[in-house]
């Protein structure tokens, strides 16, 4: 009994430590991505030709900024590695990633819809593309029922065709017209 309690207490203590280690690992990946990217961009900025008219050329400032960023990422990465080692085991990474994505599935689905919408905008035009985007995203968030379908169709119509008319007629801002559908 005591042994079981000790085991569960140890598991309870190690759970936040493992979670901290996983978070730090995710951050470590971000430091590596930003650090590597900044080294590359700093090198690219260094290739820009210098100016005859000024001591600092077009590339000097970006080189300085990305150099500093690379340095900061290096320091942050070292600290993250130390923290991961301190926190202990880095287990169940795949499982944690899956649950992270699962919690955010609607967010990612919404973003995916946004990408498709932005891609379709030049072809379908603002009104049609927005109508479809709004309808699908609203139903995705609210769930499908007779009530939500009716509400979503009305809201999608107002904020697609209605917004297009408002901006064109009142503000003189013309939203994208489609190649396939002019509205």
């Amino acid at each position: 009994m005591t042994n079981g309690a000790e085991k569960s207490a140890a598991a309870g203590a190690s759970a936040p430590a493992a979670s901290r280690a996983r978070t730090e690992f995710a951050r470590l990946v971000s430091y590596i991505v930003f650090g590597t990217g900044s080294v590359y961009l700093s090198l690219r900025a260094g290739e820009l030709p210098t100016s005859r008219w000024e001591p600092l050329g077009a590339g000097s400032f970006p080189q300085l900024v990305f150099g500093v960023l690379a340095g900061l990422c290096l320091i942050a990465a070292i600290r993250a590695i130390i923290d991961i080692r301190k926190a202990g085991q880095l287990d169940a990474l795949g499982e944690a990633l899956c649950s992270w994505v699962k919690v955010r599935r609607i967010s990612f689905a919404l973003f995916g819809l946004l990408v498709v919408y932005l891609g379709a905008l030049p072809f379908a035009g603002f009104s049609l593309a927005t109508f479809v985007f709004l309808l699908i995203s609203q139903l995705m968030i609210a769930g499908i029922s007779k009530k939500t379908v009716i509400q979503s169709v009305i809201a999608a119509l107002i904020f697609s065709v209605g917004l297009n008319l408002l901006f064109a007629e009142v503000f003189n801002v013309f939203l994208p017209r489609g190649m396939l559908f002019a509205g």
């Binding site: 946004l114 932005l118 709004l134 968030i141 609210a142 801002v173 994208p176």
Partner: peptide, 20 residues
């Protein structure tokens, strides 16, 4: 207005703001 209307609609307003 519930969340399912606000979130996509504000997203559209952001798209309009960015485009305009």
């Amino acid at each position: 207005i519930p969340k399912q209307f606000i979130v996509p609609t504000v997203m559209i307003c952001c798209v309009i703001g960015a485009f305009a």
